[in-house]
Design a protein around this nucleic acid. Sequence first.
DNA 1: TATGAATGAGTTTTCATTCAT
DNA 2: TATGAATGAAAACTCATTCAT
Lengths: 212, 212, 212, 212
Amino acid sequence: MENKVKEAGRKTESGEEKTRYGKSEAILRAAAKVFARSGYFNAKVSEVAKTAGVADGTVYLYFKNKDDLLTSIFSWAMEEFIASARAELSRAADPREKLRRFAQLHFSLFERERDIAIVFQIELRHSTKFMEQFSTTYLAEYLQILRNIIEEGQLAGIFRAHLNSKVVAKFLFGVLDEMATNWVLSHKSHSLTAMVDPVLDIFFNGVIESNA
Amino acid sequence: MENKVKEAGRKTESGEEKTRYGKSEAILRAAAKVFARSGYFNAKVSEVAKTAGVADGTVYLYFKNKDDLLTSIFSWAMEEFIASARAELSRAADPREKLRRFAQLHFSLFERERDIAIVFQIELRHSTKFMEQFSTTYLAEYLQILRNIIEEGQLAGIFRAHLNSKVVAKFLFGVLDEMATNWVLSHKSHSLTAMVDPVLDIFFNGVIESNA
Amino acid sequence: MENKVKEAGRKTESGEEKTRYGKSEAILRAAAKVFARSGYFNAKVSEVAKTAGVADGTVYLYFKNKDDLLTSIFSWAMEEFIASARAELSRAADPREKLRRFAQLHFSLFERERDIAIVFQIELRHSTKFMEQFSTTYLAEYLQILRNIIEEGQLAGIFRAHLNSKVVAKFLFGVLDEMATNWVLSHKSHSLTAMVDPVLDIFFNGVIESNA
Amino acid sequence: MENKVKEAGRKTESGEEKTRYGKSEAILRAAAKVFARSGYFNAKVSEVAKTAGVADGTVYLYFKNKDDLLTSIFSWAMEEFIASARAELSRAADPREKLRRFAQLHFSLFERERDIAIVFQIELRHSTKFMEQFSTTYLAEYLQILRNIIEEGQLAGIFRAHLNSKVVAKFLFGVLDEMATNWVLSHKSHSLTAMVDPVLDIFFNGVIESNA
DNA sequence: TATGAATGAGTTTTCATTCAT
DNA sequence: TATGAATGAAAACTCATTCAT
């Protein structure tokens, strides 16, 4: 994720970079933490600033407003995720293996960054405004990656050819999303990545007994 | 739906009850409409009151506060849904058919009551508070119904016996939920019920070609 | 001025009227006092509310925002002034006497209501926005009254016929306005109405010695 | 105007002076432009800096604060005006002609420097603080010049001897000021200097028909 | 001199909720 | 029950000014 945040700063000399990028990133991480803890609407910008160790006004030097903080968390994380997903997928050949790695990456990101996970599964769903923005940008890209794998599998004769790949992609996203939400809400915090295999088993083979 | 709303009011004399329930329901429907239109946080109680045709203060005679309006919409609709689901399921014998009817009922309710659908898919997810409340009450009941059908199918040798029924239930909920959210956000508003069969096909049979 | 403010309230029973109208008027008078004391920009709405003896939010039940307070003071006072000017003028026949009464009324209003005078001479001139609004509405009406008197005097052969009545009206307004501003700024607060005769002498007869 | 601005800077070496004065003047002109466009209160110091082509902090090397910018515009222009007025007046003998030239100078300055005119007629009147400062310094000097001419005319038997020269001076200032404000607010922007003769005609001869 | 990133004080306005009628 | 006028707490955001470089 480092590199996304870096882009928010402006480069000068190497010595100063760390500090400057640190400020933008610090604010974004602080926002994720505060939003995760208090919920977006109850979160106070001054609390974000305090957590980031900057003055209130400084937040507004880096982000347009409170909404922009939320939006930035999500584009930051999504861009990061999609980039590493593409890299990861290139390392596998079998479509089934690709889907497994994709789901694994999705879940392990959340396990590593619980604040981000909470913001994604809960806070981002506040309003149709955010939802629609999410649907038409990053979610579309996420689904497209899934579709590509599915169509690849269909061409290879591995996945059932007549299935609508768009529906299949949404289907899988829905399942992963629900597992993620469930994990976020459960306080005992079982392993999320452990769900990958059971879930993909159902997704691949269905629930019906093959000789039924 | 009458009976749920009745409980929200307080009983006095029979003659007035009809009016009271009418008012309580009017307020709840108004709230759903206003929340769906403006989002819960931006919605004003005075707007709900105006839409319901009552004075601002009257809202507080029927509901404790703004939160209670949202909570009441959701318990009202869920209790209604679960009751009709149970009734509907008793009319089918095959577990596959039961799941089909269940999904059909879920989606047709949303198609009939779009405001309710929006509130369920978007507004209810505002905060961990609401999410947790939902998870531990009505969603638990919803999932239990699914589990019962699945376990019934497993005993009958129709569904794969070693699958964890709890995971399977969440899996199916995740898929249906995603389709519903997708439908709510898409402005062209394609048919939601038309998704039941394609989705269940994948759920039942998986995506992998059987001879693959 | 009573009647203007009354119109802001809504009539019910006679007993309550005094109180309700009192609130709107109290807020407006409080605003004039606070604006006169601190200047519009430095004045706090909460100070206005406190001075009026109401809660902060109550100000916004009667006025749209802080700007509206300033605008309302000025329309309230101008409408009042113009109404009494028209009434006063009907009692005089000679155009010279009419002008004298008009100026007298203008100045005596300010002497009676110093807060209003300060708001008019200083606070209203904050911005081209206010100035333009003032110029195109009430000032236009004020000038029209003067023009009518002047043209009446021209027809009667009393005032020089070839003078542009529009210019003459602005000329007189400029003089009266300057005297008013001067009086507002001078702390010793000499009589303003005492200036009517000396000023009109110059206006009527000019500064040049007639046999010069 | 150079010399006024020079005083605002602090002298160092001759080579740099040219640059410095240029910067000081650039900032002042930028301030006049920005204040004229946005109004003093809405104008941002950073906007002034940007318009002047310097960094925000640089403004504070030349001027104490935002108030000082406004004050400096006005003293800069007034000193300039009064100096050229004195020069101009020495070239005329007749008091009537002197007044004509004075008014002409006043108006032509505004026509040449519309931003300055706007600042003078609108922005300077923000607060009693500015008004009082203006009244007791430059306006006093302005009025004194007028008084001197008037008294000179009275001694010469040209102007009516018993008129209070102080009142006459304010009278004339009020008229010229009103014409200037009017011109600033009117968007069609007719000629302001064209008003000199009609206005002085009334001022000299009054409005009353001499044989009336 | 010049920069511009950082500061943080300060205020309008909204709106859920109450309560006298 | 029903009303709706009144309350008042609460927070995002701006921008003049500073100061380390």
